[in-house]
Write a protein that binds this DNA or RNA. Sequence first.
DNA 1: AATTATGTTGCGGT
DNA 2: AACCGCAACATAAT
Length: 288
Amino acid sequence: MPELPEVETVRTQLLPVLKGRTITSVEVFHSKTIDHNAEFANILTGKTMSTIERVGKLLIFSFLHERDLYMLAHLKMTGQFFYSQQQTVTAGGGHSIHTQDITDLPNKHTRVTFELDDRHYLHFNDMRLFGYIKLVDEKQMNTARKHFGPEPIHKDFPVEDFVQKIRKRKTTVKAALLDQTLIAGLGNIYVDEALFKAKIRPTRRCYRLSKREVATIAHQAGEVMRQSIHVGGTTFQHFLNTTGGTGNYTDQLKVFGKQGTLCQICATPIQKTKVAGRGTHYCPHCQT
DNA sequence: AATTATGTTGCGGT
DNA sequence: AACCGCAACATAAT
């Protein structure tokens, strides 16, 4: 499940290898992925990549000398970008369970392949077809940006404003933290991890949280995502980075997927329940 | 072999 | 405006 740290990992891997590269051809294997845009390949062919930005879990690609064309990419649940070299000789297969053999691309889950002018390819794989890559103009790009609230990894995250907004909500704190317009970048994994570090139960009602508790949640959300970015994100089920490797934050998860194991702080078994319609993990002793 | 859980986002309805 | 439930999908597990 790519959340902010995983998408940022992809962005920082792609930027140096794609910047300045010209797209020489585009192959679309599944039309839904590109929003059924018949001109997708035509428009991109010959375009030179420049910046890659990330807002929440959304990637925004821009192109040299193109002020009114942007490519938005969302991985949703199972989207993956893979960067591979053109094959000149047949390579032997890898045997790892989790990592993808990058020489075996495109494969049955590849939805779009971009051919680059330096004998490399960029592949977009997406098993469940929720992800998308779409071309938009500047106005649409700015509209997409406005959808996202502030990011807790940012130094000037507006804590006071966040406290005010959160405390107006009637839902559980878990539901609020998943709302990308309120705070951007958290998904199911990092919400559970942040709430564990903040010692707050996911079922707590927003309006019953103290100002200090809300500020702590924002702080811990930033901490957990910054630390995850530092080690290349979390691979829980599907996430792989652009070279097919896994994220190393998986080893540092305290509650997500840890139901039945003992809390590292108090040795109480970690519980799993459903909150806000989502699988939710917490320590019943540490989190109150 | 049919059913269920998985998780992000956007939409319709309250 | 806030909130809820569900749809969009494919696959593994039951």
